[in-house]
């Protein structure tokens, strides 16, 4: 590779990666509800993207490719801590962050409630839901990102939304969430 073409790629890369960063961070935070961890995950995913830049054949797929790397980083993180469990089924109690993160304290009640409810979803459902609603990925794209069949995307999405709706309805009815089993 010549120096010039390398620099060109490098510049393009940096611009593309900088641009993708806020979206990656938002989704990473929605997954783990821990700002420092989310930032670490994005850093790691970005480093991996730089390393494997040559594996991306179609630049149009850059965004979903980056989210796939991010997802693998998070799964690796969870896998290291829960080697014998099904990562997709892990729910809130397995999160790294504290139960009631300080970040949420200043947020409005609604925001805090939704974030808490999302954190209670199993990891697999949480990922599908946030990729569809926050990043507006199509079902097929989400399937490719998480490496699951599209039917699984749809069923997880349906279950996630039902659980989220029930959870938020309970919260609105002022039932103390901790006591609901």
């Amino acid at each position: 590779m010549t120096l010039l073409s390398f620099l060109f790629h490098s510049r393009q890369w940096r611009t593309a990666l900088e641009g993708a960063r806020p979206g990656l961070y938002r989704v990473a935070y929605s997954w783990c509800r821990d700002a420092a961890l989310a930032d670490d995950l994005v850093q790691e995913a970005t480093a991996k993207a730089l390393e494997r830049g040559d594996q991306l054949r179609d630049p149009a797929r850059l965004k979903s490719w980056l989210f796939a790397i991010l997802s693998r980083c998070w799964h690796d993180y969870l896998r290291a801590r829960h080697p014998h469990e099904d990562i997709d089924e892990l729910a809130e109690e397995y999160l790294a962050g504290p139960d009631s993160p300080a970040d949420d304290v200043e947020r409005s009640q609604t925001v805090a409630r939704v974030r808490a409810a999302v954190a209670r979803l199993p990891v697999g459902q949480r990922q599908v839901l946030t990729l569809v609603d926050l990043e507006e990925f199509g079902y097929a794209e989400v399937g490719a990102i998480l490496d699951i069949p599209i039917g699984t995307v749809m069923s997880r999405l349906h279950r996630a939304r039902r659980a989220l709706r029930d959870d938020l309805l309970r919260a609105e009815a002022q039932v103390p969430l901790r006591r609901v089993k």
Binding site: Y29, S30, A35, V114, T130, L134
Partner: peptide, 11 residues
């Protein structure tokens, strides 16, 4: 959901 993550805490 979108509203809840419109402004994630700064890292």
């Amino acid at each position: 959901l979108r509203h809840a993550y419109a402004e994630p805490p700064a890292a």
